[in-house]
Protein backbone atom coordinates (compact mmCIF):
# COMPACT_ATOMS: atom_id res chain seq x y z
CA UNK A 1 0.00 0.00 0.00
CA UNK A 2 1.32 3.47 -0.87
CA UNK A 3 1.00 6.59 1.23
CA UNK A 4 -1.79 9.06 0.42
CA UNK A 5 0.36 11.94 1.52
CA UNK A 6 4.10 12.19 2.05
CA UNK A 7 6.01 15.16 3.38
CA UNK A 8 9.74 15.56 3.79
CA UNK A 9 12.11 18.24 5.02
CA UNK A 10 9.39 20.79 5.71
CA UNK A 11 10.71 24.06 7.06
CA UNK A 12 9.08 27.41 7.70
CA UNK A 13 9.97 30.32 9.94
CA UNK A 14 7.87 33.23 11.15
CA UNK A 15 10.59 35.82 11.64
CA UNK A 16 13.00 34.25 14.08
CA UNK A 17 10.48 31.64 15.25
CA UNK A 18 10.77 28.24 13.61
CA UNK A 19 7.23 27.05 12.87
CA UNK A 20 8.39 23.93 11.06
CA UNK A 21 11.87 22.52 11.31
CA UNK A 22 12.68 19.44 9.27
CA UNK A 23 9.26 17.79 9.52
CA UNK A 24 8.62 14.58 7.59
CA UNK A 25 5.60 12.31 7.67
CA UNK A 26 3.50 9.85 5.70
CA UNK A 27 -0.22 9.26 5.87
CA UNK A 28 -1.59 5.95 4.61
CA UNK A 29 -5.16 5.18 3.51
CA UNK A 30 -7.47 4.66 6.46
CA UNK A 31 -4.93 5.93 8.94
CA UNK A 32 -5.77 8.47 11.63
CA UNK A 33 -2.77 10.53 12.66
CA UNK A 34 -2.96 13.06 15.47
CA UNK A 35 -0.55 15.96 15.80
CA UNK A 36 -0.31 17.04 19.43
CA UNK A 37 1.66 19.74 21.16
CA UNK A 38 1.20 22.99 23.00
CA UNK A 39 0.01 26.23 21.39
CA UNK A 40 2.69 27.62 19.12
CA UNK A 41 4.37 24.25 18.61
CA UNK A 42 3.69 24.45 14.88
CA UNK A 43 0.95 21.86 14.65
CA UNK A 44 -1.62 24.09 12.95
CA UNK A 45 1.08 25.42 10.62
CA UNK A 46 1.93 21.84 9.70
CA UNK A 47 -1.72 21.15 8.90
CA UNK A 48 -1.93 24.24 6.71
CA UNK A 49 1.26 23.33 4.88
CA UNK A 50 0.21 19.71 4.36
CA UNK A 51 -3.13 20.79 2.95
CA UNK A 52 -1.54 23.26 0.55
CA UNK A 53 -3.01 26.31 2.25
CA UNK A 54 0.43 27.56 3.21
CA UNK A 55 3.74 27.26 1.38
CA UNK A 56 6.84 25.94 3.17
CA UNK A 57 10.24 27.56 2.71
CA UNK A 58 11.81 24.17 2.18
CA UNK A 59 10.65 20.61 1.74
CA UNK A 60 7.95 18.96 -0.28
CA UNK A 61 4.45 17.56 0.21
CA UNK A 62 3.35 14.85 -2.23
CA UNK A 63 -0.21 13.67 -2.73
CA UNK A 64 -1.21 10.42 -4.41
CA UNK A 65 -4.42 10.53 -6.43
CA UNK A 66 -6.85 7.58 -6.61
CA UNK A 67 -5.21 6.43 -9.86
CA UNK A 68 -1.82 6.30 -8.16
CA UNK A 69 -0.38 9.47 -9.74
CA UNK A 70 1.90 11.48 -7.48
CA UNK A 71 1.51 15.29 -7.28
CA UNK A 72 3.67 17.83 -5.50
CA UNK A 73 1.04 19.77 -3.59
CA UNK A 74 2.71 23.17 -3.75
CA UNK A 75 3.32 22.85 -7.48
CA UNK A 76 -0.34 22.19 -8.25
CA UNK A 77 -2.29 25.01 -9.85
CA UNK A 78 -4.89 26.73 -7.77
CA UNK A 79 -7.73 25.21 -9.79
CA UNK A 80 -6.34 21.71 -9.30
CA UNK A 81 -5.79 22.25 -5.58
CA UNK A 82 -9.33 23.59 -5.16
CA UNK A 83 -10.77 20.63 -7.00
CA UNK A 84 -8.77 18.35 -4.73
CA UNK A 85 -10.07 20.18 -1.66
CA UNK A 86 -13.66 19.58 -2.64
CA UNK A 87 -13.31 16.01 -3.88
CA UNK A 88 -10.60 13.75 -2.50
CA UNK A 89 -9.73 15.98 0.47
CA UNK A 90 -11.67 17.72 3.20
CA UNK A 91 -10.83 20.31 5.82
CA UNK A 92 -12.68 20.68 9.12
CA UNK A 93 -12.02 24.01 10.81
CA UNK A 94 -11.96 24.60 14.54
CA UNK A 95 -14.58 27.30 14.23
CA UNK A 96 -17.57 25.98 12.26
CA UNK A 97 -18.19 29.51 11.00
CA UNK A 98 -14.99 29.21 8.98
CA UNK A 99 -16.22 26.04 7.31
CA UNK A 100 -19.93 26.78 6.88
CA UNK A 101 -21.90 29.33 4.95
CA UNK A 102 -23.91 30.87 7.74
CA UNK A 103 -26.53 32.39 5.42
CA UNK A 104 -27.19 29.16 3.57
CA UNK A 105 -29.48 26.43 4.95
CA UNK A 106 -28.11 23.20 6.41
CA UNK A 107 -29.15 21.34 3.25
CA UNK A 108 -27.52 23.93 1.01
CA UNK A 109 -24.33 23.75 3.03
CA UNK A 110 -24.12 20.00 2.57
CA UNK A 111 -25.22 20.21 -1.06
CA UNK A 112 -22.61 22.80 -2.05
CA UNK A 113 -19.76 20.34 -2.48
CA UNK A 114 -22.01 18.04 -4.51
CA UNK A 115 -23.08 20.91 -6.75
CA UNK A 116 -19.48 22.09 -7.05
CA UNK A 117 -18.55 18.73 -8.51
CA UNK A 118 -21.46 18.79 -10.92
CA UNK A 119 -24.54 17.36 -9.18
CA UNK A 120 -27.55 18.89 -10.94
CA UNK A 121 -30.51 16.92 -9.62
CA UNK A 122 -32.22 18.85 -6.83
CA UNK A 123 -34.08 15.83 -5.45
CA UNK A 124 -30.94 13.71 -5.24
CA UNK A 125 -28.92 16.50 -3.67
CA UNK A 126 -31.62 17.03 -1.08
CA UNK A 127 -31.92 13.32 -0.31
CA UNK A 128 -28.15 13.07 0.11
CA UNK A 129 -28.16 16.11 2.41
CA UNK A 130 -30.95 14.61 4.54
CA UNK A 131 -29.07 11.33 4.77
CA UNK A 132 -25.93 13.13 5.94
CA UNK A 133 -27.86 15.11 8.53
CA UNK A 134 -29.10 11.80 9.88
CA UNK A 135 -25.57 10.39 9.92
CA UNK A 136 -24.32 13.31 12.00
CA UNK A 137 -27.36 13.02 14.28
CA UNK A 138 -29.16 16.17 13.24
CA UNK A 139 -32.91 15.84 12.69
CA UNK A 140 -33.40 15.84 8.88
CA UNK A 141 -36.53 17.94 9.49
CA UNK A 142 -34.10 20.82 10.12
CA UNK A 143 -32.68 20.63 6.60
CA UNK A 144 -33.93 24.13 5.73
CA UNK A 145 -32.78 25.80 8.95
CA UNK A 146 -29.89 28.23 8.94
CA UNK A 147 -26.74 27.08 10.78
CA UNK A 148 -27.01 30.13 13.04
CA UNK A 149 -30.01 28.43 14.68
CA UNK A 150 -27.87 25.40 15.58
CA UNK A 151 -25.84 24.87 18.74
CA UNK A 152 -22.04 24.88 18.51
CA UNK A 153 -21.90 21.09 18.54
CA UNK A 154 -24.52 20.82 15.79
CA UNK A 155 -22.71 23.39 13.69
CA UNK A 156 -19.54 21.35 13.98
CA UNK A 157 -21.40 18.18 13.00
CA UNK A 158 -22.91 20.03 10.06
CA UNK A 159 -19.43 21.09 8.97
CA UNK A 160 -18.33 17.48 9.12
CA UNK A 161 -21.32 16.35 7.04
CA UNK A 162 -20.59 19.08 4.50
CA UNK A 163 -16.98 17.92 4.30
CA UNK A 164 -17.64 14.19 4.05
CA UNK A 165 -20.51 14.30 1.55
CA UNK A 166 -18.17 13.89 -1.44
CA UNK A 167 -16.46 10.91 0.23
CA UNK A 168 -12.95 12.33 0.52
CA UNK A 169 -10.14 9.88 1.25
CA UNK A 170 -8.13 12.34 3.34
CA UNK A 171 -9.52 14.83 5.85
CA UNK A 172 -7.61 17.49 7.73
CA UNK A 173 -9.09 18.50 11.08
CA UNK A 174 -7.92 21.51 13.06
CA UNK A 175 -8.98 21.18 16.73
CA UNK A 176 -12.48 20.03 15.71
CA UNK A 177 -13.67 19.88 19.31
CA UNK A 178 -11.78 23.00 20.38
CA UNK A 179 -14.56 25.45 21.08
CA UNK A 180 -17.09 23.03 22.53
CA UNK A 181 -18.34 22.08 25.99
CA UNK A 182 -16.83 18.92 27.42
CA UNK A 183 -20.10 16.97 27.22
CA UNK A 184 -20.53 17.98 23.59
CA UNK A 185 -16.93 17.11 22.79
CA UNK A 186 -17.41 13.50 23.83
CA UNK A 187 -20.38 13.05 21.52
CA UNK A 188 -18.57 14.70 18.62
CA UNK A 189 -15.42 12.65 19.12
CA UNK A 190 -17.42 9.47 19.17
CA UNK A 191 -19.21 10.48 16.00
CA UNK A 192 -15.96 11.30 14.25
CA UNK A 193 -14.52 7.97 15.41
CA UNK A 194 -17.46 6.03 14.00
CA UNK A 195 -17.54 7.91 10.67
CA UNK A 196 -13.81 7.56 10.18
CA UNK A 197 -14.02 3.81 10.77
CA UNK A 198 -17.12 3.38 8.58
CA UNK A 199 -15.73 5.35 5.65
CA UNK A 200 -12.13 4.18 6.03
CA UNK A 201 -10.97 7.80 6.03
CA UNK A 202 -7.41 8.90 6.46
CA UNK A 203 -7.36 11.80 8.91
CA UNK A 204 -4.72 14.25 10.03
CA UNK A 205 -6.06 15.81 13.19
CA UNK A 206 -4.46 18.62 15.14
CA UNK A 207 -5.40 18.67 18.80
CA UNK A 208 -4.07 19.59 22.19
CA UNK A 209 -6.55 17.17 23.77
CA UNK A 210 -4.57 14.03 24.62
CA UNK A 211 -7.72 12.07 25.46
CA UNK A 212 -9.18 12.88 22.05
CA UNK A 213 -5.96 11.80 20.39
CA UNK A 214 -6.02 8.49 22.27
CA UNK A 215 -9.61 7.84 21.28
CA UNK A 216 -9.27 8.71 17.60
CA UNK A 217 -5.71 8.32 16.44
CA UNK A 218 -3.81 5.27 15.34
CA UNK A 219 -0.59 7.19 15.32
CA UNK A 220 0.66 10.24 17.15
CA UNK A 221 3.16 12.98 16.32
CA UNK A 222 4.34 15.14 19.19
CA UNK A 223 5.48 18.60 18.10
CA UNK A 224 7.51 21.14 19.92
CA UNK A 225 9.03 24.33 18.53
CA UNK A 226 8.41 23.23 14.97
CA UNK A 227 9.98 19.80 15.35
CA UNK A 228 8.44 16.36 15.65
CA UNK A 229 10.08 15.26 18.90
CA UNK A 230 8.40 11.87 19.09
CA UNK A 231 6.06 9.79 16.99
CA UNK A 232 4.62 6.32 16.85
CA UNK A 233 1.71 4.14 17.82
CA UNK A 234 -0.71 6.23 19.88
CA UNK A 235 -0.86 3.99 22.92
CA UNK A 236 2.90 3.49 22.98
CA UNK A 237 3.68 7.20 22.77
CA UNK A 238 1.19 7.95 25.54
CA UNK A 239 1.97 4.97 27.82
CA UNK A 240 5.72 4.81 27.27
CA UNK A 241 6.75 8.33 26.27
CA UNK A 242 10.45 8.64 25.54
CA UNK A 243 11.05 12.34 25.01
CA UNK A 244 11.16 14.68 27.94
CA UNK A 245 8.52 16.92 26.42
CA UNK A 246 6.14 14.02 25.76
CA UNK A 247 6.55 12.86 29.34
CA UNK A 248 5.63 16.34 30.51
CA UNK A 249 2.65 16.46 28.15
CA UNK A 250 1.33 13.09 29.33
CA UNK A 251 2.05 13.80 32.99
CA UNK A 252 0.00 16.98 32.84
CA UNK A 253 -3.13 15.12 31.71
CA UNK A 254 -5.34 13.27 34.14
CA UNK A 255 -5.82 9.63 33.15
CA UNK A 256 -5.79 10.10 29.42
Amino acid sequence: MSALLEASGLALRFGAVPALDGVALEIFPGEVVAIVGESGSGKTTLLRVLSGMMRPEAGEVRYRDPEGGLHVVHEMGEAELRRLHRTDWGFVHQNPRDGLRMRVSAGGNIGERLMAVGARHYGNIRAEAAEWLRRVEIDPARIDDMPALFSGGMQQRLQIARTLVTRPRLVFMDEPTGGLDVSVQAKLLDMIRALVADLGLAVVIVTHDIAAARLLAHRLLVMRRGQVVEQGLTDRVLDDPQHEYTQLLVASVLAA
Binding site: V104, S105, G108
Partner: peptide, 13 residues
Amino acid sequence: GLMHVKLYEDIAR
Protein backbone atom coordinates in the same frame (compact mmCIF):
# COMPACT_ATOMS: atom_id res chain seq x y z
CA GLY B 1 -21.20 25.61 -7.19
CA LEU B 2 -22.22 28.59 -5.08
CA MET B 3 -24.61 29.88 -7.76
CA HIS B 4 -26.35 26.53 -7.73
CA VAL B 5 -26.51 26.73 -3.94
CA LYS B 6 -28.56 29.91 -4.41
CA LEU B 7 -30.92 28.10 -6.80
CA TYR B 8 -31.11 25.17 -4.35
CA GLU B 9 -32.03 27.57 -1.54
CA ASP B 10 -34.79 29.10 -3.67
CA ILE B 11 -36.33 25.75 -4.47
CA ALA B 12 -36.07 24.64 -0.83
CA ARG B 13 -37.77 27.82 0.35
